[in-house]
């Protein structure tokens, strides 16, 4: 609990990456720096006397690199699941103050260097519901499950190696121990790939809403169109 005039301080601590290739491992340093250390991020709390810690999508789009890329024949439709990492978001009176990734966030470029989008990088498997790893991932609180439908409308086979997910358009539904998003449709066409919410998918039964989308799909579309227009015209 935090009250008026309190200072809320937070700092993410990640497990150390192996520093070299010789197999030496350093002991994890569990001692925290003093509170006046600039590593701590501070927020002054107003009149609200509490805050919520909820799962959220990262502020950047998520680029999932599939561990096993596959070919999608022309006209084919494939359904399955992918999992992405959530962040811990601090909300005050329903307003997101800050969110922290639960692992060191790596980045990647989705698109070309002159007009691409910088995304969070993650590696994932494309899974069918029957695969045994599904159940273990479902119980892992670090991940949110995305039911996906891939459709190739182009005339040529498409090599599916990456899927880019715009988390700001998605909700997180809690279904028992599973966190799940709306179903996503990835449409591969001759002009590129487009992510959208799959209108055909029903909401999971008995699901409760943990996180709502921060922007609507239409809003995002307008913003992206304007960004594209600005990038093209340099106005």
């Amino acid at each position: 609990m935090a009250g008026e005039g309190d200072i809320l301080a937070a700092m993410p601590i990640y497990p150390r990456m192996p520093a070299d290739t010789k197999g030496k491992r350093e002991k994890p340093n569990l001692s925290l720096p003093p509170l006046n250390d600039p590593l701590w991020t501070r927020f002054y709390m107003g009149k609200e006397d509490g805050y919520d810690l909820v799962p959220a999508y990262p502020p950047l789009p998520i680029c999932l690199r599939l561990k096993d890329p596959f070919l999608l024949p022309p006209g084919a439709t494939l359904e399955g699941w992918v999992f992405s990492r959530i962040e811990a978001s601090i909300l005050v009176n329903g307003t997101a103050i800050v969110s922290y990734p639960l692992a060191i966030p790596f980045k990647t470029l989705y698109g070309t260097p002159d007009a691409g989008v910088v995304c969070r990088f993650e590696e994932a498997e494309f899974l069918a519901t029957a695969e045994p790893v599904m159940s273990s991932l479902n119980d892992d609180p670090r991940f949110v499950a995305h039911p996906v439908r891939l459709k190739n409308t182009s005339a040529v086979p498409v090599m599916v190696s990456e899927l880019c997910i715009y988390g700001e358009q998605l909700s997180i539904f809690g279904q028992e121990s599973l966190m799940i998003s709306e179903r996503l449709l990835f449409l591969f066409s001759s002009s590129g790939v487009r992510m959208s919410l799959d209108g055909q998918a029903p909401l999971p039964p008995g699901a409760i809403t943990i996180a709502k989308p921060t922007v609507s799909g239409e809003e995002r579309f307008i913003v992206r169109s304007f960004e594209l227009f600005k990038a093209i015209t340099r106005i």
Binding site: M17, T21, C63, R65, I104, P105, F106, K107, T108, L109, Y110, P113, V118, F121
Partner: peptide, 16 residues
């Protein structure tokens, strides 16, 4: 070693 440093760098992009 250089590639490993880049792979473990938080800001360096994985792609390109």
């Amino acid at each position: 070693i250089l590639k490993d440093i880049a792979a473990n760098s938080q800001n360096a992009l994985k792609n390109p």
